[in-house]
């Protein structure tokens, strides 16, 4: 093998090495910090191809610049109205300043430790300022949850600023009572439901008896009105009859009396009647003597 060939191969090898030691790619999902003997000198935040002095003079550290979510552990807090609550929160955060990040928290797990401390202390402070009834309420105007969470995000950001971190938001995944308190909540729920059920049932019977009473009342009114009308009609009939009789009979009262008496005799004298007739009565006038 000639000297030239060996030289060529050597140059190519060194070239490859240099490419790896000098040039580096920055992906759009990452920030790169260039360190010189371990000391950060500059940050590359734009994606593309970059160069640096070769290792070991300058080396690089890569940081993911994408948004990520950190799930701290469940925590219990006390609200302003002294209610025990269990909270699971999560901050969505990302690295904004890789140099600060590298200097202060070094890596993601370091950042998570700080975030956990900061967010939970902010949560504790915030819950101490708000009543549970203003976080969980049916009154829209009274709802302060968003206000509180925005405050927590703002305050936490104030504290993580120096770590080169931005908290996009802090959200509450769980806001509930501790397990040991849930039993009494369930009891209260049950009692409330029983009350409501009772209310429904008594409302039902109230309404029903109202309807029945109304019906009975109406029935009575209908019947009494009918009675009134009926009596009126009967009266009209009787009056008419009296008039008719009077009209007719006053034409010859004596004859009427005679006829009416005869009619009456016919009715009231029945077979149980005993008549004692003197022979000089008008009836037996001819019975005693046929004389004229």
């Amino acid at each position: 093998m000639s000297i030239r060939k060996i030289l060529l191969i050597a140059v190519i090898a060194v070239g490859f090495g240099a490419v790896n030691l000098i040039f580096f790619q920055v992906d759009l999902t990452e920030y790169v910090v260039v360190t010189q003997f371990g000391k950060p000198v500059r940050a590359v935040t734009d994606p593309g191809l970059n160069w640096k002095l070769p290792d070991p003079i300058q080396s690089i550290q890569r940081f993911d610049n994408r948004l990520t979510v950190f799930l701290p552990n469940k925590a219990e807090f006390l609200t302003k109205d002294k209610k025990n609550i269990v909270v699971e929160s999560y901050p969505a955060w990302k690295i904004t300043n890789p140099i600060e990040f590298l200097k202060t928290v070094k890596d993601v797990s370091g950042a998570q430790a700080r975030l956990s401390d900061i967010v939970s202390s902010e949560l504790g402070v915030a819950f101490g300022k708000y009543d549970l009834t203003s976080l969980v309420t049916t009154n829209k105007k009274n709802m302060k949850l968003k206000e509180m969470m925005d405050g927590i995000t703002r305050n936490s950001n104030e504290k993580v600023k120096d770590y080169g971190i931005l908290i996009v938001d802090v959200r509450l995944k769980v806001l509930s009572f501790p397990e040991k308190n849930k039993l009494s909540v369930f009891q209260r729920m049950r009692a409330e439901r029983e009350k409501i059920a009772r209310k429904y049932r008594s409302e039902g019977s109230e309404e029903a008896s109202k309807i029945r009473a109304e019906a009975d009342k109406e029935k009575t009114i209908i019947l009494s009105k009918a009675y009134e009308k009926a009596q009126m009609l009967k009266g009209e009939g009787d009056a008419g009859a009296i008039r008719i009789y009077a009209d007719a009979f006053q034409k010859d009262p004596e004859f009427y009396k005679f006829l009416r008496s005869l009619q009456a005799y016919e009715k009231f004298i029945d077979k149980n009647t005993t008549a004692i007739l003197p022979t000089d009565s008008e009836l037996l006038k001819y019975f005693a003597s046929p004389k004229k």
Binding site: I269, T279, D280
Partner: peptide, 10 residues
């Protein structure tokens, strides 16, 4: 239809 008694009376 009635029970009758007749009394002879002057």
């Amino acid at each position: 239809r009635v029970n009758k008694y007749m009394l002879d009376v002057k």
